[in-house]
């Protein structure tokens, strides 16, 4: 998939409590959660972020709580993809499972100034900064994770498997 968008840049160790504070975890509706996304870091962020924008961050993005509400809130805000130097494992799985495109690309993060436009090809794993014209190779997802992405998320993959097993036992 290809995305093009304006960037919002965050630092290292952005935790899921600031992505979406627990006081809003009474719902898992993306649009509702999006009203509060990142507000403890920047109270104006939910009103500034536009559909198609890209979140860029340092290392260990999404550390802390297992709340899937974090990638759901980012997705609900219309963010097209997230680029970070590295991800906390649970956030990484959650994002893949719900179909929020995320990639690792440390050099692109280092060179970027907030507001830069990026062109991102998540299938090829390539990031281009349109201000500088520089191109970067992102870290490839493992083949196993690529299968989940291609199936359309984890539950779609499980659904296929459940159907196949039901077919076998019926046959």
């Amino acid at each position: 998939m290809q995305y093009q968008g304006k960037t919002w840049k965050f630092g290292d160790d952005i935790d899921t409590d600031v992505i979406i504070p627990a006081r809003y975890l009474l719902t898992s509706d993306g649009e509702e959660l999006a009203q509060y996304v990142m507000e403890d870091l920047d109270p104006s962020f939910p009103s500034k972020v536009q559909a198609g924008d890209i979140i860029v961050a340092g290392k260990n993005f999404g550390c802390g709580s297992s709340r899937e509400h974090a990638p759901i809130a980012i997705q609900g805000a219309g963010v097209s993809c997230v680029i970070a130097k590295s991800y906390a494992r649970i956030f990484y799985r959650n994002a893949i499972n719900i179909g929020l495109p995320i990639i690792e690309c440390p050099e692109a993060v280092d060179d970027l100034e907030e507001g830069d436009e990026l062109e991102v090809d998540t299938t090829e794993g390539v990031v281009v900064n349109t201000r500088t014209g520089k191109s970067y190779d992102a870290t490839q997802h493992s083949p196993y994770v690529q299968q989940i992405i291609q199936a359309g998320g984890l539950m779609a993959a499980v659904g296929e498997r459940v159907k196949a097993q039901a077919g076998e036992s019926a046959g």
Binding site: N94, N97, Y144, G153, M155, V158
Partner: peptide
């Protein structure tokens, strides 16, 4: 280990995880 809700949903269905 901790995981998100969708990983847990898949595990409730299959009894396995990756």
């Amino acid at each position: 280990t901790g995981m998100g809700s969708t990983d847990i949903a898949a595990a409730m269905a299959t009894g396995t995880t990756w």
